[in-house]
């Protein structure tokens, strides 16, 4: 490569910087696959979605999408007066701020436990077990959860009954339905975080721990001063990825409660999905645009915080 040695060797203490490859078009060849797919399959549909949010487009207009009336911000204004939409937004917020830490905590706990010198075979066994919920399709598993949560005969309420607690009708009680969905989602998702964090844990050089041991660090200290900082990229990844997924959560309430009782488990995505299903494309497009904007803002915020700390 031509432009070697452009940096003085003196600056050795600084992080070694990459030299530019000679032709930056090489980089474009590398990103080309993404660019093509994005431009062809995502950019247009995305703009179409944005565009229709300013119109009164319905499913009945799909043959002739130009023959719709522009209604300006009407869909957006309606959104803020829609009681169910407001409730859905609130539920989504609650869901993200509770399910996210819960899922990551569970994933981290499992990963740390599995990485703490468990023999190979049992470790593999546990990993598989903990990962199972993540890979199982929700349709089959929903029936099992309904059984668990059955107000009269479900194991959960029976156990509660032994200690004299009269368990609620979990899924049809407005106060418990959303918490149940949150726990169920955490149960279903933590396996993914576990795998990612486990991979990251195993990449932490043993020397760092040995150094910490020499400094006389206790277990908790080792965890805080070595493990957590080393896991930061992986944790950031889990946080961003999970929050993007959770902000769009929909499958669990769709299958378990259809968003009920009285909208208590209706999420923003589910409400949008229902509006699309009912053919209100303009209105659904507006709701989706708002959700999308919030998610983007959320992700940016997380990157900021993640970088700074």
């Amino acid at each position: 490569m031509a432009t070697t040695l452009e940096r003085p060797a003196l600056k050795q203490a600084a992080k070694p910087r990459l030299r530019k490859p000679r032709n930056s078009w090489v980089a474009w060849i590398f990103v080309l696959p993404f660019l093509v797919v994005f431009v062809v399959f995502w950019a247009g549909p995305l703009l179409a979605g944005l565009g229709m949010s300013f119109t009164d487009m319905r499913s009945t207009d799909v043959r002739d999408p130009l023959a719709v009336d522009v209604v300006g911000l009407e869909n957006y204004l309606r959104l803020f007066n829609d009681e169910l939409m407001r409730k859905a937004a609130f539920n989504t917020l609650i869901f993200v701020v509770t399910a996210l830490p819960l899922t990551i905590a569970l994933g981290l706990a499992a990963a740390v436990a599995l990485n703490s010198g468990i023999a190979r075979l049992p470790a593999a066994f546990f990993r598989l077990g903990y990962y199972t919920p993540y890979i199982t399709s929700i349709i089959g598993i929903a029936v099992a959860w309904r059984f668990l949560l059955d107000p009269d005969a479900g194991p959960i309420n029976q156990v509660l009954g032994w200690v004299g607690i009269d368990g609620p009708a979990w899924l049809s009680d407005e106060n418990t339905a959303l918490p149940v969905i949150i726990v169920m989602t955490a149960w279903r998702s933590f396996g993914f975080d576990m795998v990612v964090l486990l991979a990251a844990l195993q990449g932490i050089p043993k020397e760092l721990y040995e150094a910490a041991d020499i400094d006389g660090a206790g277990r908790w200290q080792r965890f805080r001063s070595v493990t957590v900082p080393m896991l930061r990229p992986a944790l950031l990844f889990c946080t961003v990825y999970s929050s993007i997924g959770f902000a769009q959560f929909m499958e669990e309430p769709l299958v378990m409660t259809k968003g009920g009782p009285a909208g208590a488990t209706t999420s923003a995505s589910l409400a949008i999905y229902n509006q699309f299903g009912a053919g209100a494309y303009g209105y659904a497009g507006a709701a989706a645009t708002v959700l999308f904007t919030v998610i983007v803002a959320l992700a940016l915020l997380q990157f900021r915080i993640g970088r700074r700390s």
Binding site: V39, V40, F41, A43, G44, P45, L47, A48, L50, G51, M52, F54, T55, M57, P65, L66, A67, V68, D69, V70
Partner: peptide, 22 residues
């Protein structure tokens, strides 16, 4: 292929210019 993406883009933008037939 790109043509169609552009077509869709046009859909989004041109929507402003069009209206419903009676």
């Amino acid at each position: 292929m790109k043509k169609y993406a552009i077509g869709l883009l046009a859909v989004a933008l041109a929507a402003t210019a069009c209206g419903r037939d009676s």
